[in-house]
């Protein structure tokens, strides 16, 4: 087991190492404009400087806080809406086409509307990101709860379980794989909205703002460095959810 782990770590690092070497090599050939395509070493140096000096921390903290808050609000409301749609046939028949329609509207198309309602700033960012999370999570929750294996419900009913017990002990657990898949998509899209809103909705801090500021000030090395940080957040978010999913949905 220990041997397998020691083999896995280098494998994970193989592609990034190759990419960095290739990046460095291509950049040194100066085929591309060195101003727009700095060397990997220069970018890593900038990244180290941003982290070591703590300069990136306010932006990082702001983005993580907005992302966390949006996911928390979006998840609670998304699960509640999904539950409502799943439990009441009238709500499902009348609201699910509308929910599908709303989900089809890109979150970015709603920027102006949310700006009118909430003004510019972090409140708008969180509201919009949570909105996207709600609609991408509610439908998997609803469909997961409605698609419970009928044999399991039959067994639970024959054992005289109440509707509430069946909901909590059977339907909810059977829906978990779909819910996690939906949550992974919702979390990725929520991050996208937070980043874009940081760029264009007048955020005081945030990685999106740091990116757009770096572009405006031609600090290209910083631009690349922040992109790497955003990539790490996206990857960690996805991996984190996958790890939790593997623990919780252990039977899949």
């Amino acid at each position: 087991m220990r041997e397998v782990k020691s083999m896995q770590l280098p494998r994970i690092l193989v592609f990034p190492a190759i990419a960095l070497v290739a990046w460095q090599a291509v950049a040194q050939t100066r085929v591309f404009d060195p101003f727009l395509f700095p060397t990997a070493f220069a970018v890593l140096e900038k990244l180290f400087e941003l982290v070591a000096s703590g300069a990136i921390l306010p932006d990082l903290a702001s983005t993580l806080a907005k992302l966390g808050l949006s996911l928390a609000i979006g998840s609670v409301l998304g699960v509640m809406l999904g539950l409502l749609l799943a439990r009441w046939e009238f709500a499902f028949e009348s609201l699910s086409p509308a929910a599908d329609f709303v989900r089809g509207i890109p979150g970015t198309a709603l920027f102006p509307l949310f700006m009118l309602f909430f003004g510019v700033g972090d409140v708008t960012t969180v509201a919009l990101a949570a909105w996207v999370c709600v609609f991408y999570l509610s439908l998997p929750v609803c469909r997961g709860l409605r698609a419970t294996n009928p044999a399991l419900i039959a067994v639970a009913k024959s054992l005289k379980k109440t509707d509430l017990e069946i909901l909590l002990q059977v339907r909810a657990l059977d829906a978990l794989p779909r819910v996690f898949t939906g949550f992974r998509i919702a979390a990725s899209l929520t991050l996208v909205v937070v980043m874009l809103a940081d760029m264009f909705l007048g955020a005081q801090a945030g990685l999106g703002k740091a990116l757009i500021d770096a572009a405006y000030t031609y600090d290209v090395a910083k631009l690349y460095a922040v992109i790497i940080v955003v990539g790490v957040i996206g990857y960690s978010l996805n991996r984190g959810i996958a790890v939790v999913e593997k623990k919780v949905v252990h039977w899949k």
């Binding site: 294996n149 009928p150 044999a151 399991l152 067994v155 024959s158 657990l173 978990l176 252990h250």
Partner: peptide
């Protein structure tokens, strides 16, 4: 009541 095992008579979790 015992449904067919192929239909999933046991709770997988």
């Amino acid at each position: 009541y015992v449904p067919q095992h192929t239909a999933g008579a046991l709770f997988p979790w």
